[in-house]
């Protein structure tokens, strides 16, 4: 085991870590924002919308994230340059960079998995609570944000927390489309120093710590949640 390379590459790893965290936070934010309507229309929406949402969830959950990522970066990305005038447009710097593609792919993945979880969660909220909310005069939107969504999230929080950790563990895939997050930096170190184990072990240790921090954070959030259940006292 030789670690002489570590001080030299430590700043790079810090950059990589920042990129990993950005990717994770953006994917979770956009993903959950999409997952809420995707879960909701499967419970209350009109048939065609429900089918569309269902098909989306099945497609995302039934194909490897790596293929989705490559489909979006290489596949969709290769279609953009054929659009006339796009190279001169304001969007081009964004479309040329790999990071936005990674954010889109990971967000869609989160949306697919969490949409499925939220479908069950929305269905699991007792009807009486929604009727009570409507009965005291809340508008449908208010019922959703004050009662339905909070109650649904509360019930499936441990599941969702577990899924977010799976998302963290999927972020190294972004390195395959030249987004140099922690794992990508590890690959660079391996190529430049010809050391096999040390960079990989260091990368593994970083992810171990990140997972640990996330688990503790979610456990803290869960402990802050009010747990009042009818009959459970």
């Amino acid at each position: 085991m030789e670690w002489y390379w570590l001080p030299e590459y430590l700043p790079k790893f810090a950059e990589g870590l920042w990129l990993t965290i950005q990717l994770l936070v953006l994917a979770i934010t956009f993903g959950m924002a999409m997952a809420i309507p995707i879960g909701l229309v499967q419970v209350t929406g009109p048939r065609p919308l429900a089918w569309l949402a269902k098909g989306f969830c099945i497609s995302i959950r039934g194909t490897p994230l790596l293929i989705q990522l490559w489909l979006i970066y290489y596949g969709v990305g290769s279609l953009f340059p054929s659009i006339p005038g796009i190279r001169e447009s304001m969007l081009w710097p964004l479309l040329r960079d790999a990071f936005p593609y990674a954010v889109v792919a990971f967000s869609l993945s989160v949306a697919g998995y969490e949409g499925e979880v939220l479908r069950g969660a929305f269905r699991g909220v007792p009807k009486g609570e929604l009727e009570a909310a409507r009965a005291i005069g809340m508008s449908p939107l208010k019922v959703l944000f004050r009662v339905w969504l909070p109650r649904a999230l509360q019930n499936v929080f441990p599941t969702i927390a577990g899924e977010f950790i799976l998302t963290l563990k999927a972020t190294p895939l972004a390195a395959t489309i030249t987004v140099f997050e922690v794992y990508g930096i590890g690959t660079i170190v391996r190529q430049e120093t010809y050391r096999i184990y040390e960079p990989l072990l260091f990368v593994a240790a970083i992810y171990l710590c990140l997972t640990g921090v996330l688990v503790l954070f979610f456990r803290y959030l869960e402990s802050r949640m009010p747990r009042r259940m009818a009959g459970a006292g």
Binding site: I58, G62, S78
Partner: peptide, 16 residues
């Protein structure tokens, strides 16, 4: 690219 990755996604989906 687009067509081949779509084809692969389709095969994985069928497997699932």
């Amino acid at each position: 690219y687009f067509m081949f990755y779509m084809a692969a996604a389709f095969l994985y989906l069928m497997l699932t």
